[in-house]
Design a binder for these strands. Structure first.
Lengths: 140, 140
DNA sequence: AACAAGATGCAACGGTGTTGCATCTTAATG
DNA sequence: CATTAAGATGCAACACCGTTGCATCTTGTT
């Protein structure tokens, strides 16, 4: 299991493996959509693990600092968090059922980023790209 | 002046031209970066025009409904608003000086959206794309 | 078992944005 | 110019996301 690798890696670097930490990691790993802080909290509670919202925010902050978890913004005012072995995917987000899927268009964007440097002398550090629409299930 | 066109257009459609409305329009038109609600409020106050934050939110909502103003998200949790003749949603945002420039890659993205329909049966309604980095001025 | 660093909970707070309601302004009408 | 009704504004209160300070509890090491 990859979550075990993550846990061992954290421990080897001198970090603690608390109940909440391991729960957040395994839960986010199993989730196929990025979750907000509140959703993480709710999901833990379903497994009978109570955690204060402050703890959740501090935990995602910790996991982000350690490169385990990544933030995504869907433009509704809340951060969402996901565990992704290779950072950066873009997503399709269904506006009806909220289903999220990762897609890849790195090659096209890398080409475009090179053009931005060449034409506008703008050095891209990061970007955001999300598509909102109707997924295949909802459209059927 | 284009702001006059906007004002006449609004009036012709039966909307009122209040002090705050005209001030928001001309101020946003002159601004070369998208502004948050708070920044709009502060900018009006610099011109001795006081406005309640509720009024600002209602005004940007009104202007958005009338297709005059567009929202942009930079991922810091606040909406920003910009007057743009053609609704144009991609930008380079300098993380040092906050300068924002519009860029065009519609053709590439339209191609990609057609592929999303074809391959994943995902119908794109809208998307977000912003590049964060260092602009030519800051990099010099 | 003792201990220090780290994790947690709680309360309070700040910021963004919204809503209900009372009041004021705009612009059209007589 | 006075009237008037719709629309605009201000105010207070609220909801929500996220953060901070501080006291307390856990973890893992000695």
């Amino acid at each position: 299991m990859i979550t075990d690798d993550i846990l061992h890696n954290l421990k080897d670097r001198g970090h603690r493996l608390t109940k909440i930490r391991t729960a957040v990691i395994s839960m986010l790993w199993l989730s196929d959509v990025p979750l907000s802080a509140f959703e993480i909290k709710a999901s833990l509670e379903k497994d009978k693990i109570k955690a204060n919202k402050t703890t959740i925010y501090r935990e995602v902050s910790f996991l982000r600092t350690n490169g385990i978890l990544h933030e995504i913004q869907f433009g509704d005012g809340k951060m969402r968090y996901k565990i992704c072995p290779d950072d950066h995917h873009h997503h399709t987000i269904c506006v009806r059922c909220s289903r999220v899927e990762a897609i890849s268009m790195e090659k096209d964007l890398e080409k475009y980023e090179r053009e931005l440097v060449r034409l506008k002398r703008f050095k891209v550090l990061r970007h955001t790209l999300e598509f909102f629409g109707i997924c295949s299930r909802c459209n059927a």
